[in-house]
Design a protein around this nucleic acid. Sequence first.
DNA 1: AAATTTGTCTATTTACATTTC
DNA 2: GGAAATGTAAATAGACAAATT
Lengths: 472, 472
Amino acid sequence: MPVNSFDDYPMSWKPKLTKSNKPIYQALAYQLESDIKSGALLPGTMLPPQRELADYLDLNLSTISRAFKLCEQKGLLSASIGRGTFVSSDARSNSILLNVLNDTPSEGFIEMGAILPTLEEGDMITSFMQTILKEPGSYQYLNYSSPMGSPFQQEAANHWLQKGHCFVSKQQILFSNGSQNALCCILASLFQTGDKILTTSLVYSGIKTVATMLGIQLVALPLKNGRFTIEQVQTICKTENIKGLYLIPDFHNPTTVTMPLSLRKEIAAFAISNHLLILEDAINTLLKTDAAILPSIQSLAPENTIYIMSLSKTISPGLRMALIASPQAYIKKIAVAIYNNTISVSPLMVECAARLIQSGLAEQIRCHRRLEIQKRNELADSLLAGFISPCEAECNLRYLQLPDYFTGTSFELCARQAGVQVYAAERFAVGNCSVPKAVRIAITSPASTNECNEGLIKLRSLLINPHDFTYL
Amino acid sequence: MPVNSFDDYPMSWKPKLTKSNKPIYQALAYQLESDIKSGALLPGTMLPPQRELADYLDLNLSTISRAFKLCEQKGLLSASIGRGTFVSSDARSNSILLNVLNDTPSEGFIEMGAILPTLEEGDMITSFMQTILKEPGSYQYLNYSSPMGSPFQQEAANHWLQKGHCFVSKQQILFSNGSQNALCCILASLFQTGDKILTTSLVYSGIKTVATMLGIQLVALPLKNGRFTIEQVQTICKTENIKGLYLIPDFHNPTTVTMPLSLRKEIAAFAISNHLLILEDAINTLLKTDAAILPSIQSLAPENTIYIMSLSKTISPGLRMALIASPQAYIKKIAVAIYNNTISVSPLMVECAARLIQSGLAEQIRCHRRLEIQKRNELADSLLAGFISPCEAECNLRYLQLPDYFTGTSFELCARQAGVQVYAAERFAVGNCSVPKAVRIAITSPASTNECNEGLIKLRSLLINPHDFTYL
DNA sequence: AAATTTGTCTATTTACATTTC
DNA sequence: GGAAATGTAAATAGACAAATT
């Protein structure tokens, strides 16, 4: 074999290592990162095998490995044994979903990207807060507090958790500053840099950004029409040294799919026998009617599941509150993480949430919200008929699979031009999955039913007359 | 030299490696951790040199190194070249300072450990909140918001920051959920696992616990009467690859010392010429009178300093609010970290804080608090005369250097027996420093001046009649 | 001031496990 | 179904730099 045989190998990436004072592995990782960010290496590209690169650059295999590892931890690459290393699908897309961090939108722009709540119920809550503040001694809610809450608060939280079919003792409940904060604290306390968590190949992007920040790697579970099988989970876990699973069983974000009971049972059994930790995100569970709610995975594998129930989508995001129900074994660690993170949650907000639940007002708000969502879903079904995937009437999201001549990203750009924000599937992509041509539509975000109607009409005309827009 | 010469080496630690399926370096680290936690290896102990251990166990030097590194990142060890590896001073003490995570205290127990605010001012704030909530449209404060805040909020924040001699443009201000949260977000976004931050050898323990959680290492700057010199900073930074400095220039926690202007200038100059990032924690700055406030380090090195001003100690911890003033270069990164952490701060709390400042009520509360603190300091000065270190009249903490027959920990235990909680210096120790025999007393925490008085009297009798107590 | 001690860091070697063909 | 391809991970080697004596 001639020495220069690698010249013939069709290498997708030929880095040039100029001499620098940096160590080789860092210089190589840096160049890889630049080439991905500049677009020289596109999402999905397979990199040359580590051995080929080592040969080509006349370096040791492990040096290449180490450089790749750096980029992998930044979420730029995903690799698997025997298959190769690929540039991540979302390496070039923006995963931060709240526009507040980006430009402020202009007048008349319709937000259907970020999930905002319908706000009609807000006044109920503000007046409720006033009642609490009026009481003598209400200043005590301005002190520090325990993430465990008071017995009354635990009682109320437990009541609410049970609506989601989550059954724990009071000592297993913690309060956090919303469900993103819950995820952040759980990841920081129960996982380490380099650990791997399995999740669906399209997933709530908040888990992606926080995992990346903490150096925790997400591994993608391929989806077929928003669904996956237990066999897929088993195969990946067998080979990838997976520490945990992140799942959204009800109204999955962004695909809207609800996980069937059979799969919940299979996952629970598998987690128990393989000592896996499941993070069950019940963010949308209580949007469903009580009759429609299935047993939670937590109820099927109580020692292996941490159940997170946000109050943002069902009561109000203004409370900045989520409930965490965890096996006793992890409570202390998570509580310490909450302390490290914020010392304590706002006792005023905890008390307010507890009383909203206890008084029945929370339940009332939940029903209100459901009705509004049903109304908007009817609009979406009729206006986008022929395009939009069907989903349950209570779902706050819609998943729009696009005609072939669009990609999620191109459609998002066109919609933006037309004055409507939606989010492309690319934003939700994990690892090296094939990204479906789709966008997510948040129907609750427009301030009024009317504005929602308007937004949907704009999207429809885009689907019907794509040639009117330039971003194709 | 005989092969077994290491038998004669007086090894402070002789691990036994039983065969397990774990990798050697992990098994070794695990044993080291157990031996520290069980007390077989005490704080301050020097471990055998890595080469000696490698010889003794017949392993490669790097394998030992790797095992040590694991423990070092957990904060259990601190090592330096040429000097050796030592068990950390705080390896066995509890650094979580809020008792809410531990046992609930019994009736009559006086809290002077955790720093709680005097609560008399609480009613002003709760009634203020009501006024905001009463306004039509107040439900908008229940939505998501930007960590940048509205122009009005930025204006108010800027006004408050300027009182602390921090001068930035409005675009350089972020809101976080309290200063612990600010630290968490800053560390998570601007530092990486394994990075080193220099700080005083006794320091606010919240930075210790969050750094440990994130795998960031604190390096100790030795203190002499609570003071250090620029030469010490220079020496350590030269050798230790320090990425940043964490400082509390005003009423340092726990030593109460205020950093003189000369040192501030030297540190600022050093940070600029060495591209170091300073985290300036102005937690207590506004407890001082306006006339007593010195130029902030931020004002002396504006491109190198992130200034964190909590509203907890000066206005109310119930707001769960801190202001972050950062060089433009880091704003985006920190904002993303806040998003990853909690999506957004509570807009209601931000608005409330802004209006408190704008209305002048915040300033009024600040004065109130100052008067109460002054009163309590007079008490402490007279009751603990002969024992307590003098400090400025506005400081919310006292630092009590103990007679020789006490250690901080033993005194803390005695005081607890006597019904008063104080915190031992050990809780604040960083790395392998010699821990002074001292405790911190939080004079603002007792609910009333009377209770404070009572607590101080109990501490005095403990100092005068130590033999009455059993924990020596 | 020179030699020794000591921890740090990068690169290398070797064994291993899974996937693909 | 076996061989080749491919990534992972532990242990090792060697050069380096600061602190100590």
